[in-house]
């Protein structure tokens, strides 16, 4: 009897290790294949030049890199301030009011809306209205996606600030907006910054909302109101094209995108932790 229970335990450990492996192996497999296939196309020309005319070799993805950065910056300009202000409202002003809990529910629901649907919203609002594909629509979609992430990080890191500090501020007669911005927000700064960086990393990989908003372009971006190339859409277009040269470039772009996203995440999660304590 005892032997059979011990054997059972061993079998179960083997099964658990196998199941864990089923999740670990794909990760290394993905990263391995991206590095393996992507590193061979890396060059200065690849990173800085325009795509070569169709059929000729060479050329690069410079316009797509620039496009992703531009759209991300504008999206951050929309999403981060709105996210922080909403987070402040939820942490300091909403309390348990009815409007507070409504806002909280909606912010949470917004984070569960598929990115494709948010892109569809930008498409219906901007692209269909102006009959023109534009980076503005992409910026709106990605900006909206950032809001719940930044708001949640802001709210959570402001909530852990001890009430003693707020009360000390009140006892000194400091007005509430000053307590909120100078004391609570400055204590919560680390969490707000890491939340914003993670949101930036998150939208850097989002592709679905860009497909029918920023579309794609083979030229340098000329304005945010024009169609623009992005790394994400380039990976998709080139990967499904089937042309060997384009597929190789898609791998290169994937390597770059993964490096960007993982670098930000590692920096925030593992380096930031010491400095800001728990944020």
């Amino acid at each position: 009897m005892i032997v059979s229970r011990r054997t059972k335990e061993k079998l179960i450990i083997a099964a658990l290790v196998a199941l864990t492996g089923a999740a670990v192996v794909p990760l290394f497999w993905i990263i391995g294949s991206i590095v393996w296939n992507g590193i061979s196309v890396m060059s200065l020309e690849f990173l800085t030049s325009l795509p070569a005319p169709f059929g000729s070799s060479g050329g690069g993805i410079g316009n797509a890199i620039l496009g992703t950065l531009i759209i991300n910056l504008f999206a951050s300009g929309l999403g981060i301030p709105l996210g922080i202000l909403t987070g402040i409202y939820l942490a300091e002003y909403a309390h348990d009011s009815r409007m507070g809990s409504a806002v909280r529910t909606i912010v949470e629901s917004l984070s569960g809306v598929p990115s494709l649907v948010i892109g569809l919203f930008a498409f219906t609002l901007i692209v269909l209205s102006f009959r023109h594909y534009t980076g503005v629509a992409a910026t709106l979609a990605l900006g909206i996606m950032m809001i719940p992430l930044v708001a949640k990080a802001t709210e959570e890191s402001m909530r852990v600030v001890s009430d003693d500090l707020r009360e000390a501020g009140m006892a000194l007669g400091i007005p509430k907006y000053n307590i909120t911005t100078r004391i609570v927000l400055s204590m919560a700064k680390g969490g707000v910054i890491s939340g914003s960086l993670l949101a930036f990393a998150r939208i850097s990989g989002e592709t679905a909302p860009l497909l029918f908003t920023a579309l794609f372009s083979f030229y340098w971006p000329t304005g945010i109101d024009q169609p623009m190339a992005t790394l994400q859409v380039l990976i998709y277009n080139y990967a499904i094209s089937g042309f060997a040269d384009w597929v190789a470039k898609a791998w290169g772009a994937s390597l770059l995108l993964v490096l960007l996203v993982i670098t930000i995440n590692v920096a925030v999660r593992y380096l930031g932790r010491k400095k800001y304590g728990g944020a």
Binding site: A23, I34, G205, I235, Y236, A239, V247, L257, V261, I262
Partner: peptide, 24 residues
Amino acid sequence: ALSIVIDMLATIPSVIFGIWGLWI
């Protein structure tokens, strides 16, 4: 190590899973 693996799996963009699924 496992918690890094879980974080990374959650971080990898969807389109990267796509190119891996399609070609590999």
